[in-house]
């Protein structure tokens, strides 16, 4: 485990931000931190980045109790992001890299690599003020990853990116994961959860209400529903409920005790079966279901 969070509590004067939060984040995975606005995601992230401290509970980073020195091994891209507007891109990144404990020459070399890789060589001496929003996002992303952190925390990384840059960012995130970096990825966009995450945790009202491996979680929410494509006339069958029907498509739910093989055996007596597919709930559905159940 890269990060073990145990029984974390955080209370602000008027409300409880985190209540008994425990999470295990394995090394080298992309961990999706989900939850509606105000659920406590940012509070949790700020405790992991040691911007604030917890009231109770502990965090272990790579086997050690989380300490100030670990800050240099964490890269954090906050949701609300910004840069010094008057500073030049190059010197700003150099400053931020040095604040993460890099030596100047080392930071300079790594930054040059990034500038070449993202094809932004001529930005070095531009003041941040002159950059477009998308360019600033790229700059900020470099600032987050240049020191090659063990843990990368990305809070809504795709917001503000156009589709082309979002794709580029996705590729970069996957490449960073390949190098063994653990990524904590907080988002509302369920399609990117489906695409990128290996593990997820859903936080609502300061508590973890759902967590686990992505496929495992999806399996938990399966409703035993199947989509079929067919030719012919679909009749009522014992143990198979037709939820919706169109001339060539239908959604069926199998009763307890009826397996897919039995269902198919029944179906082929009536129609020519072209396709039989299990309906796996999307994370969007899971999200909405769990959040409304726990509200």
């Amino acid at each position: 485990m890269l990060l073990s969070i145990r029984n974390l509590e955080k209370r602000y004067a008027e409300h409880v931000a985190l209540q008994n939060i425990s999470l295990e984040i394995p090394k080298g995975c992309i961990f999706g931190l989900l939850g509606p606005n105000g659920a406590g995601k940012t509070s949790l992230i700020r405790i992991i980045t040691q911007i604030t401290g917890p009231d109770a509970g502990e965090i272990y980073f790579d086997g050690e109790r989380l300490r100030l020195e670990h800050a240099d091994q964490i890269g954090y891209l906050p949701e609300e992001r910004g840069l010094y507007k008057k500073m030049k891109v190059g010197e700003q990144l150099l400053y931020l890299a040095q604040l993460k404990g890099m030596r100047k020459d080392e930071a300079l070399a790594k930054l040059k690599d990034w500038f070449i890789r993202l094809d932004i060589k001529d930005w070095w001496n531009k003041p941040v003020d002159d950059l477009s929003k998308g360019m600033q996002q790229k700059t900020q992303f470099i600032a987050t990853v240049v020191h090659e952190p063990k843990l990368l925390i990305l809070d809504e990384p795709f917001s503000g990116f156009d589709p082309i840059n979002a794709n580029m960012l996705k590729d970069e995130i996957l490449a960073i994961k390949e190098r063994g970096t653990t990524i904590l990825f907080s988002t509302h966009r369920m399609e990117s959860v489906e695409e990128l995450c290996d593990e997820i945790a859903l936080i609502n009202h300061a508590r973890v209400v759902l967590s686990g491996n992505k496929a495992e979680v999806q399996a938990r929410f399966k409703k035993n529903q199947f989509m079929i494509r067919f030719e012919g006339n679909l009749m009522q069958m014992p143990g198979i409920e037709v939820i919706s029907q169109q001339p060539s498509h239908a959604v069926l739910r199998l009763s307890e005790g009826i397996g897919t093989n039995e269902a198919i055996a029944l179906l082929i007596q009536q129609v020519r079966l072209l396709e039989f597919k299990e309906l796996i709930p999307s994370f969007n559905e899971i999200f909405i279901q769990v959040v409304s159940e726990t509200n």
């Binding site: 980045t49 040691q50 911007i51 100030l68 800050a71 240099d72 964490i74 954090y76 891209l77 906050p78 609300e80 992001r81 910004g82 840069l83 010094y84 507007k85 931020l96 604040l99 993460k100 900020q140 600032a143 987050t144």
Partner: peptide, 17 residues
């Protein structure tokens, strides 16, 4: 005020106290 309103503050204080 500049650091706060430009929102760079959160990045900085994840590196320094």
């Amino acid at each position: 005020i500049e650091e706060k309103s430009s929102r760079i503050i959160e990045v900085i204080i994840s590196s320094v106290k």
